[in-house]
Design a protein around this nucleic acid. Sequence first.
DNA 1: CTGATTCATAACCGAATGGTTATATAACTG
DNA 2: CAGTTATATAACCATTCGGTTATGAATCAG
Lengths: 123, 123
Amino acid sequence: MNQNRLDLVFSALSDATRRGMLEQLAAGETNVGTLGEPYDMSQPAVSKHLRVLERAGLIRRTRQGREHRIRVDPRPIEEASTWIGRYARFWKQQFDAVDAYLKARADEARTRSRTKAKEQDKR
Amino acid sequence: MNQNRLDLVFSALSDATRRGMLEQLAAGETNVGTLGEPYDMSQPAVSKHLRVLERAGLIRRTRQGREHRIRVDPRPIEEASTWIGRYARFWKQQFDAVDAYLKARADEARTRSRTKAKEQDKR
DNA sequence: CTGATTCATAACCGAATGGTTATATAACTG
DNA sequence: CAGTTATATAACCATTCGGTTATGAATCAG
């Protein structure tokens, strides 16, 4: 399908191994072997995970002799964070609004609990 | 593989159709048919996308007659937002620190070059 | 009851995913 | 030079994914 950047980033982040690699890279750039050490998988499997992260633009690599130094490129993460953050904020706000509404209604009900009979809800 | 919650959420978000559905749901809860209208795909395909969102905990459904009312559950998105937000903030901070360092070094180099020029004058 | 509407499920298909082993390439080491 | 090390690539495999068509089940309308 039409794989845009956001698709690739979220897809790359959907694997715990790859998220772990990114977190490991937060401690500083390393080579491929070191990145793969924590995981019980073959070297080609590690190589594939890195290729996925690279295709998503989440890492960059530079050759230093026979080693590949891997470092994070924070820009695509920033993009994804923006999307998801905007969305999360919207729902937090919705939740807070409903919360405030319910609280207000509870207060109101308390103050005129004897005068009011029954409220009809809309929708 | 060992599919934890974060895996499922990011995986669900990695498809533009599903992200679109979530955005559509921000306008309020709807039924399955309405959710699928914007997309050029069969009804079972829509149903499958909803199942993916549901497995990830991103939506909830309630039956009303023959219709299914779909609404967002914002909690898993909040979780994902937390992970990615923390990560994005870390890298922004790193970037800012490097930026500040480079700027400081540039300033220092500027003053040093003036000093060096003076010393050469002395010679 | 009959027929239409809303949705899910089953069965299938091709492509992508995540893993493997085996092999290739390039750089370092003695 | 030969041997070791770091990494990628190829070929393969099972599973998942995103789509399809066909069918089923429940509810609504006349």
